[in-house]
């Protein structure tokens, strides 16, 4: 496989948590690759290990065994600060609860990763403004999260996730806090982003939402039980 076309390469990854005397095997050997430009949904019942997989893919945690290559970089053995740098440059997160800074305007929320990347204040504002326009919030730049609807807040979060031009966009139950109409709008936005070349990985338990992806990986008891493309819409 051409590594330049591979965004994510997970090889025989396990994750074991030790809770007191009890060992919990959250992932029991998971192998898959995701090419650039793919749009993948990860599904599974609670306890299936999908949250653990999401944390590993998001470089918030490292596997117990196995290898994980993100955009060609082996991140399975990196330390805290190196992982932070990977998250900053290669990944964009979208959370169920939006996780916007409440006191901070939309444009400054979006600019936050650029701040940690050490980019100057002017360039931060310009790039953040551009990203907000792309998600259709060009007229809400200076609104605080409380002044925005749920759908708009999630759009701000998506703009923030994209502001560093990441290799992969990771979305954890992105529609979990949204009504169905807004969810549909958000899925349309994800579709547009994917059509524009973005690699998107989305964790959800909602079949309707997952059906927007072009491939669904299903987990159960820490193993992949199903991995197939969705029927074309």
């Amino acid at each position: 496989m051409n590594s330049a076309a591979t965004a994510i390469d997970v090889r025989d990854v396990t994750k074991t948590y030790v809770l007191g005397d009890v060992k919990v095997e959250a992932l029991r050997g998971v192998t898959f690759t995701i090419a650039r430009g793919e749009y993948v949904a990860i599904m599974g019942p609670s306890g299936s290990g999908k949250s653990t997989l999401m944390n590993l893919l998001g470089c918030l945690d490292v596997p117990t065994t196995g290898r994980y290559l993100l955009d060609g970089i082996d991140v399975s053995t990196l330390g805290d600060d190196a992982l932070a740098a990977i998250r900053l440059r290669k990944l964009g997160f979208v959370f169920q609860g939006f996780n916007l800074l409440a006191r901070t305007s939309a444009v400054k929320n979006v600019a936050l990763p650029l701040f940690y990347a050490g980019i100057g204040v002017k360039a931060r504002g310009a790039t953040a403004t551009e990203r907000l326009r792309e998600v259709g919030l060009g007229d809400r730049l200076d609104h605080k999260p409380a002044e925005l609807s749920g759908g708009q807040q999630q759009r701000v979060a998506i703009a923030r996730a994209l502001v560093n031009d990441p290799a992969v966009l990771l979305a954890d139950e992105p529609t979990g806090n949204l009504d169905s109409t807004t969810s549909e709008e958000l899925m349309a936005l994800f579709g547009d982003l994917n059509a524009g070349g973005r690699t998107i990985i989305m964790v959800t338990h909602d079949e309707g939402v997952a059906s927007h992806a072009r491939r669904i990986i299903r987990l159960r008891d820490g193993r992949i039980v199903d991995d197939r493309p969705t029927a074309p819409n």
């Binding site: 998001g58 918030l60 805290d80 600060d81 932070a84 740098a85 998250r87 900053l88 440059r89 990944l91 997160f93 959370f95 609860g97 996780n99 800074l101 936050l112 990763p113 940690y116 990347a117 923030r160 996730a161 560093n164």
Partner: peptide, 16 residues
């Protein structure tokens, strides 16, 4: 705590 979690998730280092 959540804000800190978010900042770390989007790439803030421990030092930052």
């Amino acid at each position: 705590t959540r804000e800190i979690g978010l900042r770390k998730a989007i790439g803030a280092t421990r030092f930052q």
